[in-house]
Design a protein around this nucleic acid. Structure first.
Lengths: 160, 160
DNA sequence: CACAACTAAGTTGTGCACAACTTAATGGCT
DNA sequence: AGCCATTAAGTTGTGCACAACTTAGTTGTG
């Protein structure tokens, strides 16, 4: 930042920028996680568990596969997570009768009831961000665009 | 989205919005991670390991404490990570002579040399985002603002 | 019908994040 | 000097993400 900084190699400048954007995204992601951790502690849920419950509350009972499509998570992540939700009495898991490969995840009564207590979470989160609804929608739009582009790029990079 | 949807309770609407922003941020974070994973595989680094190396390349040798301040990570995360970087021959760890509590993390020759190969990473990442430099700077600014607000909010929520 | 290709869940192993704790060294205070 | 609060690392345990693999059930094709 000083006037006497010798012009750095352009590549090194990129490295600096990369470091900055890396940090920002990583830090934002963890900061968000931290706020959710604090707020969700009352409900006895982790952040990813809360995401699963949100989908079930909105979509109703779903097979693990569909749940994974909504959340972009695979069974390697979901299986143990769902076991913990089951142990907590919030969901039940049953083999589908029609397709024995599939496992249906259902909300229990306690799981359904928890929604009432979860209703206050979003307000607290939005207030924690300090953003208004429009800003949040805008940020969401950018992030979605980013995610779409990144997913496509990962596929390309992966197939090199 | 149908015209016959009964007006949902406002609280439920918030829950929907929360679900959307949650997902977006979580997905963006993981998508970014995924692109880095692919690109960094060549260098034999994970994303957090890359972050550590970026700091060391820019700041030079540092004690674990300082490293953690730059990255907002504690020794619980850094200690095992640094052990792996040491095992990979990229850094060395030595107790400080002046303060025996402190451990100095130093780049080895291989660690310093790796920077050359890392120089191409940022270009590939930026290209993967599909954003131009100004958009990236803008996104970074928003994310930093968000992180700052969230960290402050987590403290408040935590002290309830 | 038989068999190969595919699909859904689950398992295993690695690495990260974080809370809670332990260990050891330091520095202030009486 | 002696003691105690503080500090730096490291350790332990829980949970998530993901790759690679296994198991079992389904479907398409000859």
């Amino acid at each position: 930042m000083t006037a006497t900084t010798p012009t750095p190699a352009p590549e090194a400048e990129w490295l600096r920028l990369d470091r900055q954007i890396c940090f920002s995204l990583h830090a934002a992601s963890r900061a968000f996680n931290g706020v959710y951790r604090v707020i969700l502690k009352d409900l006895g849920l982790t952040y990813p568990q809360y995401l699963v419950m949100l989908v079930l509350w909105e979509e109703g009972d779903l097979p693990v596969k569909k749940l994974g499509e909504h959340l972009r998570l695979d069974s390697g992540t979901l299986s143990p997570l769902l076991k913990r939700l089951e142990a907590a009495g919030l969901v039940s898991r049953e083999r589908s009768a029609r397709d024995e490969r599939s496992v249906e995840v259902r909300l229990t009564e306690a799981g359904t009831a928890l929604r009432e207590r979860a209703l206050e979470v979003p307000r607290r989160i939005v207030s924690a961000t300090g953003f208004d609804v429009d800003e949040i929608r805008d940020l969401k739009a950018r992030l979605d665009q980013l995610t779409g582009t990144l997913d496509a790029a990962a596929l390309e990079e992966g197939s090199r």
